[in-house]
Design a protein around this nucleic acid. Structure first.
Length: 1005
RNA sequence: GCGGAUAUGGCGAAAUUGGUAGACGUGCCAGACUUAGGAUCUGGUGCCGCAAGGCGUGUGGGUUCGAGUCCCUCUAUCCGCACCA
């Protein structure tokens, strides 16, 4: 083999690995196991861009390295192949999503293979295969048939629950979930229940249950979305508005696991950011719930206590200590008591002349709040709105009747949907009280400026607070909790922000939920009838009657008579357990065999994007804990070590169009900054050398800056920034690079273009109509800034691309893509190749013994590369390879004793090249991946002499050489004996000499 | 507002964890060779200065013989959450 030809050797070795199943993992082995997992991709139509492989390359290096270290490595890949884009494509074109998906997967496999990843492709899985989703459905049925026992703190089969019902009725059951949803009955009553009644009684206990739930309904997508699929009131995919709607929905009771999901985080080796995000998402807050009685009495005009049994409004607070300052209550508009008690108050209290107005206002407010979309609510967060309900509740501590209001700053979904408002201690309550003229009571002597704002301080001692006057925060809280408990008005309580996960989607391309209905009751289909295969339909849209697309399926009935559930599972269902299936992907009898699960255990290294921090990673942990409760898996957590590879950002080119009406409508008078570029300058620029271009660019840039500064000075209220991204009034106009260059560029006349730009720079044309900008952002097809790896592989080879992506910088960091440096690793590969083929001809490796210098270079590399891989610092090991090759080239080293171990070192990074050279070195059989990582021998690094920097007061002045064995005292004596002090000491004498053996010497004068 | 992270040459970044700041790579400058190319090779390149030397790791302070690294202050940028009671 003469010259280095990546296109030949890479194809050859990829075929070889496939043919010989080189990377097949065995389910039992004497070797220790190591499980390296990549987050499997959704196979989108756009294929891979250079950002995708970053994590895959890193995990592949680890996999290959671990094999060299003697591990039995499981490194699989598969596809999260249910999902929205294929379905939307299907709606538009009629093409079956399965076909689109399959085509896309083929592209992905081709692209992934061309990068030389060492996946065990025999374990490939696709979540949309019936053989896979059979088990996703099976897990759903397990959830459906389980409940969460708080006494044992784990999920248990429903049979345990029904046995209890039969024996003792609903008494003594301590189950996770909302007790209000559940019936109270005796064992005797249970016995008399019909089958349907029994199922109805059991349903609210299930871990997969159906319930009327406020959901994020996205009309644009025709489906329900989970919280993490909604961003700023718009759907994450597509950006359609999302509204809240009450719909019957399948839910998974993830809230039962809130505490375990929180606690489990502590022992995981995950990035702090991800752990923190999960903690926030779970949102545990410790506080108390307090019941405020509401007395409604027929004869009362003022709602004073009479004889009737009061209703109770239960509130949740994290600051019971402020309860004496609670001067009113606020209910969420959706709170059932808001209208219910409001109406009763109105009807009973006919004596009140304002009763009617109050009631009308209340009704219209609640109605309005219901119709407002989530986005409107968020947009209006600063506007204070609310309505008096017409009734009062009694503060159990002050014994005063306080008005009950409703306002949409109180969320129905959090806590109890009701709060006690303490305007002196909470800014929102303060604003509300100020707005509506409600009383503000100081409760702590440390509170200041209550006429301007609330002061939530926990310092000081309480005032105006009955029994807790004079106490501190801690004492007061303790005492009040005690009182609540003793009087039965409340108790200490922990609340979570985490909501149960909505599980149904009104879509076609997902796993059918294995439920059927008999007389309106939901039944799980028998496990023996799994999989419930996704039926064929003629169109992928919802039906005319508004049913999900599955409503179009003909004769789709369970056992020929019962209708199936028509919604399908969400995208995260299949991805919540796929890593388990890789362990035993073809097992038809079980989702994973016991032996395989025990052998592979937990994922040792999980590589993927940070965008899954609260979605996938939380759901997967939830399913794992559930499976663990039922005894199907053996470890405590599914992913021990997690690394988020940073995103590689692309460069987008924009043209911004000015909105010349904006400043008029805002009553601001200003001239927009304009930089006029002469036509001559443009021509000059086009023919300029690189250096000249920079000069011109800087000139234009400074002109523009000046213009902006002037505008800002003249109009302080506008505050124009140099970055286009911040130009709110000027709505960006995304334009394809090609369109810019061909159609508009000439009109723009000039562009500022620099690689180090992270924000846009704006240039106007002569008419002042267009601004062109550059922005570094996420690579995405919709932004026309995708760099396809195929092109680079074609030009430099996969090995070069692998090395280059690793060389870009630390793995976790976000970085702009920039191909400037790829020629550097290209040069390195050529130099490396030349060590083996000095004359560009046949292999010229000699068997001469290695010199100490050569051995030193090699062993330094062995040590450094090993350390770097262990700490996932791949960029520095690429540097080390370069240094080593530079040194060996300088030493003119072509010796087998050095080069053979070096090839093994490099093989995880540049596997094709390494295999080829390994073969040339005479290893005819097998693959370099079955070689052993060379052993590091420290003795080769030891030098006879060490060069010490000699500093005076910390400033290095000179270098001196000493024997490596020299002691500190010897060195100190030698330094003082030399003319060092005479030359640099400025006539002073040494006060102290610090010698760090092997490092440096510092003389203090 | 709350939480997390980051800040080092023109650029991507190193720094043995408190010990010669800027390795390696790009870019740039000069040179060699050339069939003139975005090839290859050699040397130089943090900033100021002719030099000696001085200054340099976002800002200001501190600890230390010695600080990019440890402590405190401030600033900027990025990310996540957000009327969560």
């Amino acid at each position: 083999m003469p010259a280095y030809r990546p296109e030949e050797i890479e194809k050859k070795w990829q075929a070889h690995w496939k043919e010989h199943s080189t990377f097949r993992a065995q389910n039992n082995s004497e070797k220790p196991k190591y499980y390296v997992l990549d987050m499997f991709p959704y196979p989108s139509g756009a294929g891979l861009h250079v950002g995708h492989p970053l994590g895959y390359i890193a995990s592949d290096i680890v996999s290959r390295y671990k094999r060299l270290q003697g591990f039995n490595v499981l490194h699989p890949m598969g596809f999260d192949s249910f999902g929205l884009p294929a379905e939307q494509y299907a709606i538009q074109t009629g093409q079956h999503p399965a076909l689109t998906t399959e085509k896309n997967i083929d592209t992905y496999i081709k692209q992934l293979s061309s990068l030389g990843f060492s996946y065990d492709w025999e374990r490939e899985i696709r979540t949309s295969d019936a053989s896979y989703y059979k088990w996703t459905q099976w897990i759903f049925l397990k959830l459906f048939n389980s409940w969460y026992n708080l006494d044992t703190n784990r999920a248990e089969p429903l049979t345990a629950l029904t046995a209890h019902f039969a024996e003792r009725g609903s008494e003594g059951i301590n189950a996770a979930g909302d007790a209000d949803e559940r019936q109270v009955f005796t064992a005797g009553q249970w016995q008399l229940f019909t089958e349907q009644q029994k199922l109805a009684a059991v349903h609210p206990y299930r871990l997969a249950y159906q319930q009327d739930t406020y959901v994020n309904w996205c009309a644009g997508l025709g489906t329900v979305l989970s919280n993490d699929e909604v961003k700023d009131g718009l759907s994450e995919r597509g950006g359609f508005p999302v509204e809240r709607r009450l719909m019957p929905q399948w839910n998974l009771r993830i809230t039962a696991y809130a505490d375990r999901l929180l606690q489990g985080l502590d022992n995981l080796d995950w990035p702090d950011a991800v752990k923190e995000m999960q903690r926030n998402w779970i949102g545990r807050s410790v506080g108390a719930s307090v019941r405020f009685p509401v007395f409604l009495d027929e004869e009362s005009a003022s709602f004073v206590v009479r004889h009737q049994q009061p209703e109770h409004i239960e509130v949740f607070t994290t600051r019971v200590d402020t309860i004496y300052g609670a001067t009113f209550l606020v209910l969420a508009p959706e709170h059932p008591l808001t209208l219910q008690l409001g109406q009763r108050a109105y009807e009973i209290n006919t004596a009140n002349p304002e009763g009617e107005t109050t009631w009308r206002n209340l009704q219209s407010y609640v109605e309005q709040a219901k119709n407002r979309s989530e986005r409107d609510r968020q947009a209006d967060a600063k506007t204070i709105t609310g309505a008096f309900t017409g009734f009062y509740a009694r503060n159990p501590f002050t014994e005063k009747d306080i008005p009950v209001w409703t306002a949409d700053y109180v969320l129905a979904g959090y806590g109890t949907g009701a709060v006690m408002a303490v305007p002196s201690g909470d800014q929102r309550d303060w604003l509300f009280a100020t707005h509506f003229g409600l009383p503000i009571v100081q409760i702590s002597d440390a509170q200041k400026d209550l006429d301007k704002q609330a002061d939530p301080t926990k310092e000081g001692h309480y005032v105006n607070s009955g029994d807790i006057n004079g106490l501190t925060y801690k004492e007061a809280t303790e005492q009040l909790l005690g009182t609540l408990d003793a009087t039965g008005t409340g108790e200490a309580k922990v609340t979570y922000r985490l909501r149960d996960a909505i599980f149904g989607r009104q879509r076609y391309w997902g796993e059918p939920i294995p439920i059927y209905y008999k007389d309106g009751t939901a039944y799980g289909i028998a496990e023996s009838d799994l999989p419930l295969v996704l039926p064929e339909i003629d169109e992928y849209k919802p039906t005319e009657t508004g049913e999900p697309p599955l409503g179009r399926a003909q004769n789709w009935l369970y056992r020929g008579q019962y209708p199936y559930e028509l919604s399908t599972m969400p995208g995260w269902a299949g991805s919540s357990w796929y890593y388990l299936r890789y362990m035993d992907p073809t097992n038809e009898a079980r989702f994973v065999s016991e032996e395989a699960e025990k052998y592979w255990g937990t994922v040792d290294l999980y590589m993927g994007g940070a965008e899954h921090a609260t979605g996938h990673l939380l759901y997967a942990r939830f399913w794992y804990l559930f499976l663990k409760d039922l005894g199907f898996v053996s470890a405590t957590e599914p992913f021990q070590k997690l690394i988020n590879q940073g995103m590689i950002l692309g460069r987008s080119n924009f043209v911004y169009r000015l909105d010349f009406t904006w400043h008029k409508t805002h009553g601001v008078d200003f001239t927009f900054p304009q930089v006029f570029i002469s036509h001559d300058l443009v021509l000059q620029y086009k023919s300029a050398s690189k250096q000249e271009k920079t000069v011109i660019e800087d000139f234009v840039f400074s002109q523009f800056n000046k213009a902006v500064d002037e505008i800002n000075l003249a109009n302080p209220e506008i505050g124009i920034a140099i970055s286009a991204v911040k130009f709110d009034p000027f709505h960006p106009w995304h334009v394809d690079v090609n369109i810019v260059e061909n159609d508009i560029l000439d009109q723009i006349a000039f562009r500022k273009w620099r690689d180090d730009l992270s924000d846009a720079i704006l240039i106007l044309n002569k008419e002042g109509n267009y601004i062109c900008g550059v922005e570094i952002e996420k690579m995405s097809k919709s932004k026309y800034n995708v760099v396809n790896p195929d092109v680079l592989i074609g030009k430099y080879g996969a090995d070069a691309l692998r090395l280059y992506e690793m060389f870009l910088g630390p793995l976790e960091q976000y970085k702009p893509w920039n191909t400037n440096g790829i020629s550097g690793v290209g040069g390195f590969i050529k130099k490396f190749w030349r060590l083996f083929h000095p004359e560009d001809g046949a292999l010229a490796v000699t068997d001469e013994p290695a010199t100490p210098a050569e051995l030193k270079a090699l062993h330094r590399a062995i040590q450094k590369v090993q350390e770097d891989i262990e700490k996932f610092s791949f960029n520095t090991s690429v540097s080390m390879f370069m240094i080593t090759v530079n040194e060996l080239t300088a030493l003119n080293c072509h010796k087998r004793a050095i080069l053979e171990p070096l090839v093994i070192l490099l093989s995880p990074y540049a596997p094709h090249l390494a295999e080829e050279l390994w073969l040339e070195l005479g290893h005819e059989a097998g693959s370099i991946s079955s070689a052993r990582y060379p052993e590091f021998r420290e003795e080769y690094l030891v030098e006879a002499n060490v060069v010490y920097p000699i500093a005076i007061n910390g400033k290095v002045r000179e270098q001196m050489q000493f024997a490596a064995a020299a002691t500190g005292t010897e060195i100190e004596t030698a330094v003082l004996a030399s003319d060092f002090l005479a030359r640099f000491g400025e006539g002073k004498s040494a006060k102290k000499v610090i010698v760090v053996p092997g490092r440096m010497v510092n003389v203090v004068v």
